Simulated scan of single mutants.
Amino acid sequence: MDDTAWHAFLTSRGGQLQGGRVQAFAGLPEEVEALGSAGLVPLFGSTPLRLTGADRLEFLHGQVSNEVKRLGVGDARAALMLNVRGHALALMRLYRREDDLFVAVEGGAGERVEAQLGAHIIFDQVELHNLTGTLQSLTLQGEAAGEVLQRALHAELPEADRFVQVPFEGAKVLVSRVARSAPGGFDLHVLTQDARALVEALEGAGAKLVGERALAAARVAAGIAEAALEGGEGVLPQEAGLEYAVSYRKGCYLGQEIMARIEARGNVRRRLVGLRLESVPPEGARELLAEGKVVGRLGTVAEHPQLGTVALASVRHEVGAGAPLLVGGVSATVAPLPFETAAQYTSR
């Protein structure tokens, strides 16, 4: 099975493709409900990269915001690619295996990350491989995600910051804990030729296919940021809920001086909040206004079956909960995170 056959399989299961991604398989309420139990989402925005060579750990350690050299075999970490101003440009998941480093770049930022890494390989004994087309990524989210995985793959579940490689169809599935919704779940990376069989096995164990539209709604409700949307040029990790992907103990990487300065001073100007919107703002509208002054930046906007139109945003600290804002002429109100429907999971 190649990428075309993979797309065709998902379309045959009711997948609605838009912009190269499956946005939905069913109605939004049904899919959001599935993500509370065991919703399986193809992650077409994820780019799989592989680093090999004797210098791979040292090289990547100097390129990203989190520890790499100290990773043991089987360890997993989230890390960011920053610019010289410390802005969060891309989020990635790092997995150290015996003979390589597997890197899953999120949010469609794979081309940018690959180009920057490639430009910095000079005398290093490192080879960079793009596995797009060879591998597929999915996420299984919900309270029953672990039970479904165990029934389908007959394997032990990984602990936090660890991953396992489970034998499947003569190859292996890489499984790690990644929270993309309030109840959390697992990311899965599998050979394209085995992706259909994996979906069928998980469905047989109780999972339901879900599109990215519902995943965005669940992620926003839980207050989980994505660098491609909540971060980007002009936004620091600490302003976008991405600080967990930064290590303050390491040095010598792009943006490190800014991170050290923030640690020393202990504050930034903005924070991640939720927004309730009257409607979806016009495409490209990002500036959040309070009494005509720019006070923040809009991130992910999602339609939620219980919450209505909601969003994540980075706003100045003085803008409190309940404050009225405008974005692209659309009224918005600041709301605490997580939103109410997600709090039932985070309070457990």
Rank of each mutant, 00 (worst) to 15 (best):
F59W: 04
T139K: 00
F163S: 01
A109N: 08
G296S: 13
L298S: 04
Y95K: 12
D187K: 11
Q165C: 13
D100A: 03
G72D: 09
V294N: 12
G234R: 15
R276P: 00
E58L: 11
V166S: 03
A245L: 12
G204A: 15
V126W: 00
Q165R: 13
E106Y: 05
G108Y: 00
G266I: 13
L51M: 07
G108K: 10
A26M: 07
G74Y: 01
L215Y: 02
A8G: 09
E200N: 13
R77T: 00
Q306D: 05
V41E: 01
A79Q: 07
S65Q: 07
V164Q: 04
E156P: 06
G45P: 02
A264Y: 10
A332H: 08
N83S: 13
L101R: 01
R196W: 08
N130F: 06
A335V: 15
V210S: 06
R151T: 14
E33M: 10
Q63I: 11
A90V: 13
G206A: 09
G185E: 02
P183I: 06
A26T: 13
F123G: 08
A78G: 15
L191C: 11
E230H: 01
L40G: 01
G211C: 03
G320T: 15
A228R: 06
Q18W: 06
R213C: 05
R50D: 00
E212H: 03
V294P: 12
Q63W: 05
H154W: 03
G320W: 10
E33D: 14
S12K: 09
A182D: 07
G234E: 11
G86A: 11
K69P: 01
L215H: 01
G146Q: 07
Q306I: 05
D75S: 12
S176C: 12
R276K: 15
E287D: 15
V173F: 03
E318R: 06
F102N: 03
G211P: 02
L35R: 03
V334N: 08
M92T: 08
G232V: 02
A34R: 02
G266S: 14
R261N: 14
L188C: 11
V327I: 13
P324N: 03
V246A: 11
S181K: 08
E239V: 14
E233M: 14
Y244R: 15
D75Y: 04
H61K: 02
P281S: 10
Y345L: 12
E287Q: 15
V315N: 02
I121R: 00
S279F: 01
Q238S: 13
G19E: 05
P338E: 03
G39V: 10
Y253E: 08
G146M: 09
A285F: 02
A214C: 09
Q193I: 04
G232I: 04
L140M: 11
S12W: 06
Q63P: 00
R196D: 07
R21A: 14
L254H: 06
V235R: 05
Y345H: 14
L209H: 10
D187C: 12
E278R: 11
